[in-house]
Design a protein around this nucleic acid. Sequence first.
DNA 1: TGTAGTGTCTATAGCGACTATAGGGTCAAG
DNA 2: CTTGACCCTATAGTCGCTATAGACACTACA
Lengths: 169, 169
Amino acid sequence: MPLKIGELARLTGCQVVTIRYYEKEGLLPRPERTGANYRLYGEDDVERLNFILRCRLHGMNLAEIRDLLAFKDNPTVSCAWINELVEKHIADVEAQIASLEHLKKHLEALRHSCEGDRGKGCGIIHSLDHDEPCPFCDAKPCPLHERTHAHGDRTPRHGEAEEEHAPKK
Amino acid sequence: MPLKIGELARLTGCQVVTIRYYEKEGLLPRPERTGANYRLYGEDDVERLNFILRCRLHGMNLAEIRDLLAFKDNPTVSCAWINELVEKHIADVEAQIASLEHLKKHLEALRHSCEGDRGKGCGIIHSLDHDEPCPFCDAKPCPLHERTHAHGDRTPRHGEAEEEHAPKK
DNA sequence: TGTAGTGTCTATAGCGACTATAGGGTCAAG
DNA sequence: CTTGACCCTATAGTCGCTATAGACACTACA
């Protein structure tokens, strides 16, 4: 009982267009087709797609998932790199959390800087307009204040993953 | 003493291309030019760009910053919406933190499911391959497990802001 | 005066992971 | 025989930049 793409979508909770996108990206194999050129999927495809979606929910990107699928399809001796991948993601997630916690403090301070209808004297605008020393960064320099007058170094924005871009070639 | 674009960049810690991008997006006004068509900036531009960068670090997107700048340029009676904007961002940041904390638990569980060189029996792959009940979600349904067999509703992925898209027209 | 090095200009394409749109074909029910 | 749900391909748009190409401008040193 092969499935049409919409049925696979319902089964997995994935969008139809996303399934086609994963196929184009080489994460899902090109499926059989009906006479009317409709895609037909089997049990394997359901499992593979679920694996992909679970990885996505674990914060992995498509390149990493491709690697995991390749390993799954053809397991080589060592899977130590998978452990490293997971460790890297944990570190990444921790960094994001720390950054967001910090940001939250700033936003809360911002919220308290205005009580509403003050017209042109809005306290939030005022706070955003002037660099004051960061009350939340004692030891480490706060990116919200350290940014200014920096020379050459790019401070990563909040929410950005800090991947180390290996120089190509 | 007007500044060339590179000097403005050094002063603010912003990339030259980004300054030009902000101009194209209407966040910065089109500056004067030298005879050689070089952009020339003044003190106002330094302040405006710093305002923009501070907003970006507070997690605001360019559309929101455009609104804030419009208010700053031409303050209307009420600034209550700015408070709401900040509240929304706080809620957003809190949701992201919660989601990441949850994800972290899953990743840590994943890490402990494999001790390394087990070849084709890698425990991480195995864990990713099978839906087991989420040990971290007692009351609320865990998105990592609830996703499957959903009908129609799209569960947002980690790291996605949950904006309510008003249907256009 | 030549030239090397740096800075500036415009225009265009690429990133990631989708999402949206246009314009069409297929199929079952009423 | 028409309606509506589903499927197909191809292309462009999203966001906030980043990278590339190709050309012009300016300064310092020979």
